[in-house]
């Protein structure tokens, strides 16, 4: 952006401060027991005042109350409405469009501060009014350059009384790297060199099948595979599907050098399959210090990226 254009953009953003983000909107449902039950179960919150009338009364309350942490949930519109797009003519919708114009297309919530005025009880019907408080200058963040947008949300009951006030902050940012397809590139595991002699194995792996090359003349299994049977000389082969059971024959716990696709310390194992062949693989579900030679293991599949599927093994009881 040219400087004058940049100044104009800043000014337009600044004009949103103090504007209403969205018209006051009542929540879709009043405070109710089923939603409370789902919430406390998901959160693992066993405080009895949320579901047990007696227990709630023993604390001096009139009856059960909703968890304070559900405040925002009562006003959420649901997944479909929330993802249908923000271009709804509201102040926030306009702001999001302007942010997108500046390249700030990604968002992450960063802060939420609540002040609660009273507890909600069954039957309360909560709505929210949201005012845009500020839009920060551009900041450099680990996610990319972005702007913090702070709003103040006032939660009101069916009588128009304030039940809670929330300061809500989001970072709207330009993704640091935007590869084709918009997917954040993860560090890829080293690519296997696939050629005419080994492609079948990696193709089977993509289908989550662990195969072992088998000579079609003498039946000998061989891994790593090759074009010719060292036992009988036949070029013909097919594959046998491994049972997926085996034992750790040896292993390495790797610390250095660091490769971005692997989090050290990680375990690379040489597993001997019950069919008799061995393969190099990774162990999962076991701490490096707990790995032992001869430990029985079973096959699982790892798909580290869309192009690669690898057999890995998890310790099992014998």
């Amino acid at each position: 952006m040219a400087q004058t254009e940049q100044d104009g953009y800043e000014k337009r953003l600044g004009e949103f401060a103090g504007r209403e983000a969205a018209p006051p909107r009542p929540g879709p449902d009043p405070v109710n027991v089923p939603m409370i039950r789902h919430w406390v179960e998901a959160m693992g919150d066993r405080n009895p005042v949320y579901l047990d009338e007696e227990a709630a009364r023993r604390t001096g309350r009139a009856g059960i109350v909703a968890p304070a942490s559900m405040m925002q949930a009562w006003t959420m519109r649901g997944y479909a409405a929330a993802t249908a797009g923000q271009d709804d003519g509201s102040g926030l919708g306009e702001l999001i469009a302007l942010l997108a114009e500046g390249g700030y297309t990604s968002v992450v919530a960063t802060d939420s501060e609540f002040a609660f005025h009273r507890e909600l009880t069954v039957g309360d019907h909560v709505g929210v009014r949201e005012i845009i408080e500020s839009i920060s200058p551009e900041k450099k963040t680990a996610l990319g350059a972005g702007r913090f947008v702070t709003t103040e949300r006032t939660y009101l009951d069916q009588h128009g009384e304030t039940v809670a006030v929330q300061r809500w902050r989001m970072l709207w940012f330009r993704p640091a790297r935007t590869p084709p397809g918009g997917r954040e590139p993860a560090a890829l595991r080293p690519r296997p060199a696939v050629n005419r002699d080994n492609a079948f194995w990696f193709e089977a792996a993509r289908e989550h099948r662990l195969v072992i090359q088998r000579c079609d003349a003498c039946g000998a299994l061989r891994h790593p595979p090759g074009p010719c049977c060292p036992r009988c000389g036949s070029y013909g082969w097919d594959t046998a599907e491994a049972s997926g059971r085996g034992r750790v024959y040896s292993y390495v716990v790797s610390h250095h050098p660091r490769h971005p696709a692997f989090e050290p310390p990680y375990v690379v194992a040489l597993v001997e399959l019950e069919e008799g062949t061995r393969l190099v693989t990774n162990l999962v579900g076991v701490a490096p210090e707990e790995v032992e030679i001869d430990m029985p293991v079973a096959l699982e599949w790892l798909d580290p990226d869309p192009e690669l599927s690898l057999p890995v093994f998890r310790p099992v009881t014998a």
């Binding site: 080293p190 690519r191 060199a193 696939v194 080994n198 490769h259 690379v268």
Partner: peptide, 12 residues
């Protein structure tokens, strides 16, 4: 090169 396909993807 193909020989390393049996080890490198596993971090070895």
């Amino acid at each position: 090169d193909a020989a390393f396909a049996w080890v490198s993807p596993f971090g070895l």
